[in-house]
């Protein structure tokens, strides 16, 4: 196998984010994560879920884009039906823009439907954000162009008007720089931790929306040596088929090696 050294200086940013996501998944204060679904193009959330599973927690993982042994026999339609019934406990969403009320924009910027810069589209977010029991927002890029005061267009709202049927909200936002917690009652983020090399000031400078922050700001925990060994071994084994490029880049491993 490739990268096997587990000294903290060798921790990859992706590994740190996966461990931070895993801690949020297992947060005892959050509703239990019995069934987690992971959408397309989400290798770091997928790694976090596998890390939880390989750490011995009996969670059901439904990876939408798993080519072999796909969990569904009716594609994403089945995912949305399950979620409509309240049977998906946790989902992950990202955003081309994310604002301080946890609204996400996957449509684009400028006039509708994204005449300045078009993003791919909202996918299932307008449904999943309201109907999953909780959502973790995830976006590697943490800059003022992504973390904006107010999104140009709302693909899915962070909070809903009274009376609107809604099962869950954002639990947290994990980025390449930090972890925020979200309080739906106040529609506001609080900085929970900053990754190494970041500070209260650097997070503030990179974030276009206002949020609360403790003083001092805690550091995001390193993955433990056991977690790193799991990520680089059994977690990567599970991910090679679906995310070959990610596994090569982060773990230095190739799919052909797995087949050998």
């Amino acid at each position: 196998m490739g990268a096997a050294v587990d000294t903290p200086s060798d921790i990859r940013p992706e590994e740190r984010m996966a461990a931070a996501l895993a801690a949020l998944i297992l947060d005892p204060a959050a509703p239990p994560a019995r069934h987690i679904a992971v959408g397309a193009a989400s290798p770091i959330p997928a790694a976090a879920c596998w890390l939880v599973r390989k750490s011995g927690h009996p969670v059901r993982l439904s990876l939408l884009h798993k080519p072999s042994g796909n969990p569904f026999t009716a594609g994403t339609r089945e995912l949305f039906d399950l979620t409509g019934q309240g049977r998906i406990d946790l989902f992950f969403l990202g955003g081309g823009q994310i604002d301080g009320q946890a609204n996400i924009n996957l449509i684009g910027t400028g006039d509708w439907p994204g005449r300045a810069a078009r993003f791919p589209g909202s996918f299932g977010s307008a449904f999943m954000y309201l109907m999953a029991n909780r959502t973790i927002l995830f976006r590697e890029e943490h800059s003022p162009r992504v973390m904006v005061p107010r999104v140009d267009h709302i693909s899915a709202p962070g909070v809903s008007a009274p009376g609107v049927f809604r099962r869950g909200h954002a639990q947290a936002l994990v980025t390449g720089r930090s972890v925020f917690r979200f309080d739906p009652a106040r529609a506001r983020f609080t900085l929970a931790s900053a990754h190494p090399a970041e500070s209260a000031a650097s997070i503030r400078a990179a974030t276009g929306f206002d949020y609360d922050a403790p003083d001092p700001v805690p550091a995001t925990a390193d993955p433990t040596p056991d977690q790193l060994a799991l990520l680089r071994g059994p977690v990567c084994d599970e991910m090679l088929e679906t995310y070959p490029e990610f596994c090569r880049r982060v773990f230095g491993r190739s799919a052909t090696e797995a087949a050998a």
Binding site: G84, I107, W112, P113, S122, A126, F127, M128, Y129, L130, M131, H153, I154, S155, A156, P157, S160, A161, V164, F165
Partner: peptide, 13 residues
């Protein structure tokens, strides 16, 4: 009918 979607700008368009 479909749950969710309320509050999304998709619906507004």
């Amino acid at each position: 009918p479909l749950r969710g979607v309320l509050g999304s700008d998709i619906l507004a368009h």
